[in-house]
């Protein structure tokens, strides 16, 4: 087994290219994942920003939802940004009819909690586990985390709302580090994938 982890980006819809670039900078082999057989070949997966209703529908329709749930249950590292955060939530506060999630993080998220596009904003966010300067948080029609279970670690808040969390091998942010040139959050995730691979090969 080579040292470089293979990290997929769920490529059904959304800002896939930016995640692929960020993961490559974080020294991972990055590739798009649209099919169950592609999912089987990765060590970790990013669920990108996009429209959560669209991504959810396509995941069910093309048979990736169930295999993805199974892999997350088995401990495959996953990282979701914005819509990806919604996809990793065990519960959505106000789901559209039939909107399913992958789950994996014991939290309730509120979609578009920070408002519509006119309220989208940039702000500095101090993220636990990311050393140095605060991260440039780009929040676009962003969700926030309404509440978390006991096993969930809160990594960041903005304006009193939870905007970054981790539970075991699952990581989620309301904001989009992939839209900035700062790839420290992707490095944190790539390290989680490396650690998981090392633990598995013992």
């Amino acid at each position: 087994m080579s040292d470089t982890p293979v990290i997929g980006v769920l490529a059904l819809q959304g800002d896939v290219r930016e995640h692929l670039v960020a993961l490559a900078v974080a020294d991972a082999v990055a590739r798009p994942v649209r099919r169950p057989e592609e999912l089987a070949e990765v060590d970790g997966l990013v669920v990108p920003g996009g429209e959560s209703t669209t991504i959810s529908k396509l995941a069910v329709l093309f048979g990736v939802m169930e295999p993805l749930r199974a892999r997350v249950r088995d401990g495959m590292p996953v990282y979701g940004t914005c819509a990806g955060m919604i996809m990793l939530a065990d519960k959505i506060l106000d789901p559209r009819s039939g909107q399913e999630t992958v789950g994996g993080i014991d939290m309730i998220v509120r979609r578009n909690a920070f408002g519509r596009q006119n309220e989208s904003f940039e702000a500095a966010v101090a993220v636990e586990g990311v050393g140095g300067e605060p991260v440039e948080g780009v929040f676009i029609r962003a969700p926030w985390v309404e509440s978390v279970g006991a096993a969930v670690e809160v990594l960041a808040e903005h304006d009193g709302h939870i905007v970054a969390v981790r539970q075991g091998n699952a990581l989620a942010t309301s904001f989009h580090p992939e839209l900035t040139g700062d790839h420290r959050v992707h490095r944190l995730f790539a390290d989680m994938v490396r650690a998981n691979r090392a633990a598995q090969s013992l």
Partner: peptide
């Protein structure tokens, strides 16, 4: 609010759609 990154970033979220 209303920065170039937030405006262009919104369109990035629509890609593939």
């Amino acid at each position: 609010t209303g920065t170039a990154r937030v405006k262009r970033g919104m369109a990035e979220q629509l890609k593939g759609g």
